[in-house]
Design a protein around this nucleic acid. Sequence first.
DNA 1: ATAATAACCTAGTATTTTAGTCAATTATTA
DNA 2: TAATAATTGACTAAAATACTAGGTTATTAT
Lengths: 159, 159
Amino acid sequence: MRLTTKGRFAVTAMLDIALNEVTKPVTLAGISERQDISLSYLEQLFSRLRKQGLVSSVRGPGGGYRLAKPAAEISVSCIIAAVDELIDATQCGGTENCHDEGQCMTHDLWASLNVKILDYLSGVSLADLVDNQRKKEAGLPASAIQFSPRKTKISEICA
Amino acid sequence: MRLTTKGRFAVTAMLDIALNEVTKPVTLAGISERQDISLSYLEQLFSRLRKQGLVSSVRGPGGGYRLAKPAAEISVSCIIAAVDELIDATQCGGTENCHDEGQCMTHDLWASLNVKILDYLSGVSLADLVDNQRKKEAGLPASAIQFSPRKTKISEICA
DNA sequence: ATAATAACCTAGTATTTTAGTCAATTATTA
DNA sequence: TAATAATTGACTAAAATACTAGGTTATTAT
């Protein structure tokens, strides 16, 4: 399963576009500055995002990137899948040949975890993130995304 | 967030013990052979599992490892946390300083994803996995763990 | 006693992935 | 036509992952 800064950067960058594309296309140089992500790295990520049809590009002065679809129609899972290739918590990538010829004993576990993660990320759209961010900036509590303050230290995970 | 083969190996190895510890402690050499995991790698993993109090060890001939608690009291999240140190989908590891001085725009998203994953893995115990495996071997459908056959190809993730 | 067993420990290494740099080229527009 | 900004490809540093090697220590069966 792939949930790296690559995917995080991509989501952040897409959110930056969603927030700033009101008048003009958004340049990678702008995103780079605002979000503190290397320009060249962004170029690599956007090459994939464009190929997956998530953004459209305009070259030359005044150019940049726009969302190719309405923000409400772009899910987080979609963005991560575009840059990270495969969201998969199983060893085998769905081939079900994790151990010898058959499934490994924990295949079902990872497969169902996979579905859980995917379900969640599929349910969150860029529009949700925009909403959340706007509310945050206005000093309101975030609501679109259910935020839980629970910590994740080992001591708290194990009873 | 860390969901690597390390954690998968650890869960598989723990499950192997749960299935085989009926009479004697289970040796790493046995696990290595049955699960096709390098012995030395297992030793490293079990060093951590032991330090976290998940297994107890017996040295010498006839020795090996046993679960330190009933299988029903050992959750998958606990095992993964023991070997992978930290389950965390956020960039900052919970410090909330992901971007400059404040939270990055997607902090809430990763934080809540984190909770989702953790909730799920906390709810699955080794006993559940044993059940599932026994049913599988008996040719019955798995029930303890809800298995979904849904695929996770990019084309299916994005509408 | 002692030889076999199996945990335990430390250090190192190969491979892969991540995250990034560098240097160009191409299209567009002011 | 000069500046802009996407586009491309090749290359690199650092980290993490997944191991290997070689020992030591404790225990037990003989």
